[in-house]
Structures are given as structure tokens and as C-alpha cells.
């Protein structure tokens, strides 16, 4: 009997959408900052930087809140959900899923939350988020080395030249955009194949689960 389960709590959904829109806005403004042009009557670079920095703060808050929710949220939001290979069952399902994606297996592991391969990707994404936040605010802080951000990242300067920091910040943006393509496709694929509300779940929080499949 098909069950309707409340999987994605509101903080998960809210931070997901803030993060998603942040990645898009930050990438768009970031690309503009790298390749700027003039529009008559508009302080284009000033605006691009303002939006980039304001959205960066929103993104920072969202990521921090999501980390907090990893500690207090339900089992699907928990930090444990992102490291599937801790249990033997998780490792088995990981292999099963990987084989399905590579056309070498037919069975998938039915999950209420993330499947194990996806979970691993999200772990990587959170790592990239942290990298972008650190490198971004370190670069931003250079305008005032004596200020809060400048002081916080003072140790980075002798370690990494700011040009390589900038280059990595730029390259990781492209990796996140690459992930975006992957993420949309995988969600669509599972939505079509599993018919369990993969896509709508991230709006409503509900997924349709056949307990027998689990």
C-alpha cells in the first residue's frame, strides 16, 4: 500500500532552495565580475559585486543553518545520511545504485531519502560550498586586512597566493555548475523511473513510498 511520508522538513527545503538560487546568482554575478562590461547609466560592476556579496551572506547563513539542522533534523536531514558507507547495508546499496547508473545492473536500492550515490555527491557538494565560502570571504576581506574577514583569513595569505585563491574560486564555480547539470538530470531520471515524487518532494516535503520495496 502506497504511503505518503513527510521526508524533507521545511529547513531542508528552504536551505535547498536558498542554496540553489545562491549558486545560480553567485555564478551569474561571479562570471560577470570575471568578464565585466558596461551598460550605459548602470554601475554594473558595483551592482554585480553588491549582489554577489549580499547573496554570499545569504548563502553563508543558509549553509550554516543546514549544518545545524544536520544535528537536530530528522534521519534524512542528519549528517549520517551523507556518509552511507558507514553500514554494511549502505555499502551494498551504494554498489547496487552505481551499477544501475552505469547500465550494469537493473535493480536500484529503494530509499526514503537520498540514495547512497547521491548522498556521496551531496557530501562533496557541501565540501565545495565550504571551499567557496572560505575562499570567497578571504578574497572579499582583502579590502580591509584589519577588518573581520581580513583578520579571520590572515593565515591564508602566506599559504595561498590570492591569485591561486581566485583561480580556485573560479574553477570550483564551474564544478558547481557541472554538478547542477548532473543534479537536475538525476532528479528527473529518478522521478521518471521511480515515480515516487523525487522532484515534487523538494517543494512539498512529501514522497510516495511503497514499503514493500524497501
Amino acid at each position: 500500500m502506497l504511503e505518503i511520508r513527510y521526508v524533507w522538513e521545511w529547513p531542508v527545503r528552504i536551505t535547498h532552495w536558498i542554496n540553489a538560487s545562491s549558486v545560480i546568482l553567485l555564478s551569474a554575478t561571479g562570471l560577470f565580475i570575471a568578464h565585466p562590461f558596461a551598460i550605459i547609466g548602470v554601475e554594473t560592476m558595483a551592482w554585480a559585486r553588491l549582489v554577489h556579496i549580499v547573496v554570499a551572506y545569504a548563502f553563508l547563513c543558509s549553509v550554516l543553518f543546514r549544518f545545524y539542522w544536520m544535528l537536530v533534523g530528522n534521519q534524512h536531514a542528519s549528517w549520517r545520511a551523507f556518509i552511507p558507507w558507514l553500514t554494511a547495508e549502505g555499502r551494498r546499496n551504494f554498489v547496487k545504485m552505481l551499477r544501475y547508473y552505469t547500465f550494469t545492473g537493473k535493480k536500484i536500492s529503494y530509499e526514503v531519502g537520498h540514495n547512497p550515490v547521491a548522498a556521496l555527491a551531496y557530501l562533496g557538494i557541501f565540501a565545495l560550498f565550504i571551499f567557496q565560502i572560505v575562499s570567497g570571504f578571504a578574497l572579499y576581506g582583502q579590502y580591509a586586512p584589519e577588518g573581520f574577514w581580513g583578520g579571520l583569513f590572515v593565515i591564508l595569505n602566506p599559504l595561498v597566493s590570492s591569485q591561486y585563491l581566485r583561480l580556485s574560486h573560479h574553477m570550483v564555480m564551474w564544478m558547481l555548475l557541472g554538478f547542477l547539470v548532473n543534479h537536475l538530470y538525476s532528479a528527473w531520471l529518478m522521478d521518471v523511473k521511480e515515480r515516487n515524487g523525487t522532484m515534487s518532494g523538494i517543494f512539498s516535503g512529501y514522497r510516495y513510498i511503497e514499503p514493500e520495496d524497501l
Partner: peptide, 30 residues
């Protein structure tokens, strides 16, 4: 390099999508 990376991702998943569309009998809900 970045554009290449995104394009390569898109091409890879596009190919995967084509593969999945022709995939029959994988015992999924669909």
C-alpha cells in the same frame, strides 16, 4: 576549461538519458 567541464557533463548525461530512454525491463516503478 570550465565551459568544457560543464559541456562534458551535459553531453555525458544527455547520452545517459538516451540510454535510459531505450532501457527496457529494469523492473522500475515506471
Amino acid at each position: 576549461i570550465g565551459v568544457g567541464l560543464v559541456a562534458a557533463t551535459a553531453v555525458a548525461f544527455g547520452a545517459h538519458a538516451v540510454g535510459s530512454a531505450f532501457r527496457k525491463g529494469d523492473a522500475m516503478e515506471s
